[in-house]
Design a protein around this nucleic acid. Sequence first.
RNA 1: GCCGGGAUGGCGGAAUCGGUAGACGCAGCGGACUCAAAAUCCGCCGCCGCAAGGUGUGUGGGUUCGAGUCCCACUCCCGGCACCA
Length: 865
Amino acid sequence: MQEKYHPGEIERSAQAHWDSTGAFRAAEDSAKPKYYCLSMFPYPSGKLHMGHVRNYTIGDMLARWHKMRGYNVLQPMGWDAFGLPAENAAIQNRVPPAKWTWDNIAYMKQQLKSLGFGLDWERELATCKPDYYRWNQWLFLRMLEKGIAYKKTQVVNWDPVDQTVLANEQVIEGRGWRTGAPVEKREIPGYYLAITRYADELLDALDTLPGWPERVKTMQANWIGKSFGVRFAFPYELDGKAEKLWVYTTRADTLMGVTFCAVAAEHPLATLAAQGNAALAAFITECKHGSVMEADIATMEKKGMPTGIFVAHPLTGEKVEVWVGNYVLMGYGEGAVMAVPAHDERDFAFARKYGLPIKQVIDVPGKSYSLDAWQEWYADKQGGICINSGKYDGLGYDAAIDAIAADLKAKDLGDKQVQYRLRDWGISRQRYWGCPIPLIHCESCGTVPVPDDQLPVVLPEDCVPDGSGNPLHKRADFLNCACPRCGKPAKRETDTMDTFVDSSWYYARYCSAGNDKAMVDERAKYWMPADQYIGGIEHAILHLLYSRFWTKAMRDVGLVDYDEPFANLLTQGMVLNHIFSRRTDKGGLEYFSPEEVELIRNESGHVTGATSKADGRPVDYGGVGTMSKSKRNGVDPQSLIEQYGADTARFFMMFASPPEQTLEWSDSGVEGAYRFMKRVWAYGHAVRDAVAGKPAMPEKLHEAPAATRREIHTVLKQANYDLAKLQFNTVASATMKMLNALEKMPRDADGSNAVAAECISILLRLLSPIAPHVTHALWVELGFGADILAAPWPEPLEAALAQDEIELVLQVNGKHRGNLRVKVGTDRTAIEAAALASEMAQKFMEGRPAKKVVVVPGRLVNIVA
RNA sequence: GCCGGGAUGGCGGAAUCGGUAGACGCAGCGGACUCAAAAUCCGCCGCCGCAAGGUGUGUGGGUUCGAGUCCCACUCCCGGCACCA
């Protein structure tokens, strides 16, 4: 064994040991309690980035910690292998997405191995493999049978130049990213999953997840957005026939303040009014431009135009004009809203812009209403009472809604209704690199499901998309088939599934690896639900909600017997880096990686801009943002691993900040982690002979070794507390504190060898989940055993922690003035007396008598003078 | 815009229940070793001040013997917003 620290050799040898002993192969038949440690699988974008290193180091840390605490641990890994970046790479390099994806997987797998993660590779999966995605297709067909999957129209971003559907990400300021052409909204048919049927269960079951962060549960609850309101109609006549314009509101108490209604551009009333009204037709066309993203819609200028159509107020019969508003969405609610400008901020702004009447119907005592500016209280539900509302005057929020809903019901014009913000999950994608939707279109039989025995519908792997639509349209061998019902020639569906489908159940498939007869089997019942799920906070809503829904759907098909997939959730913060971009000639956006630019900083060191190293011209600085392939701001950990080794990379990543916190990337500081690894290695060698003698701990230790031992056990106690909180940065710093203390301990006093032996064994075990290679090598070298993974997790000893004096903080009037040493167990009166008698207290009391003395046991004394 | 989160030295961060603000590192400064450099080791290190001391946790208020921590109002930054994953 070498005295100098060579991480490359140490790490190769430790990894070879784990491989040859099958250290991380998980078996179901263990008497130990199981611990399923699951990290979100990566998209194979090419190389690992720092977010992956952070994610998987956290997971590996938890897995190894639990293994040493006696759990039967499963930690699998796989690939979220379908998706848009593979098509983008194909457009750029003319390489089939399949080849690009498999090459990336091979490279990233080798990177994961070099980081020493304790993964069970025998359960590896990739969602782009037919033996995986056939089960997406199979369950989709079950959902179709149960009516959970159904067809309706969806609104998509349409690039009129490339003649293709764009992802939201591909729309930049309302234009196509490649063509720069203004994007249009287009309605096309697609398949939906009725997640809203599970809305109540998805909401209520959040209470059964104590191991989930409150913030994630709050976000999901708000996303589901259960509201109690009133669905009612404004009656009107059309060609002599009675019609109704339906709307939904949570503010029925303000119904008497309605001064107009607004409908979406796609609403039938808008279409009707546009006939013979060229201006309105033009406005409706204008509304159909722009992106479908909610953020864009919410921030764009609110515009509207009257239709000339009037409906009747359901209670007063007064005429109310219908407007078309660009902010009303057809796909949400009824595609129409009532407008109460006096008590809704958006309606208020809209009414003021177009000179529409504003009628105050809610009053809060002590406040005065003014049309000059919107005030927060106008929308207050709690303190207000109805005014200008006829028979409802004087009623509060709840009473008014009850009365108004009852009157609407009596007129058969509406009733109370529970509504959700959550919408059904549209899973159709007009893209090539995804799981084919297993349907066949037959001229005689219509849409026919592919029979189970013909699954999977295999995606051809040799297509190369060119940016102008789905290449499957040109693949005769894929497209043409026989109708399963009548046998006549038919066409396959070319839409593929949203990749969120793939990631909604992969964790259950790890547990049933290799089964070609069933989606999941008995083994899933052993391992699921996952005891710990770890992944980025950016998945707080969509991926986690879809997975919860998919689990319930699988349960209802009888595949699994659990209700929720993830018992405990750790949402790691994003790893951020600077973003640089430049507008292309066509109006698209080109990103620059941080290595390709020279930074411009202001006096305080903040980045304000940059220039390209290639051409010297300025690039736009977009602030910091999450590391992503598309923004080209990811940092490849490979150079770190090569230069310093995996242990340093892992240690630094854990040390840098607590897991849940956002981390702005900077590689200064890696040196410190590397220095620490070298010091651990050197200290191990320095005490090797002392430890080899297996020195016994004496009954009575000398003062110096006793103090060192107390410090190590105190730090260990804190570290174990921090581990339970999943606060790994202070666990890393605890190992540094331990080494500092051990290095300072004089090695000649009686018992110092025994303390060194005990404490280095504690240090190595505490450090092993973070830096498993160096600790594995030293554990063996120092003769503690053949495998540190088999060693028990260290616990602090009470005997080592005992002390007879403690130091209290002495304050005068709340200001820290000194310290006070007292024997353990000194009573309050004696502490007060000692405090008052102390020199510092006398000095700062300046002769004033003590009005009060606050004693916090074990902590401080505060004299109020 | 809406929903969720965050802000502490030059930098990353620590401070468990409201009780010594800045643990542990990075950077910096001074020193030792060296022909020299690297590596390593020792010391200093929030700001103002010679010192005593004062001051300090994004901003402004409040509660308390005592506030980074609790309350109110605000600013900026990050994540999500349903076709990035």
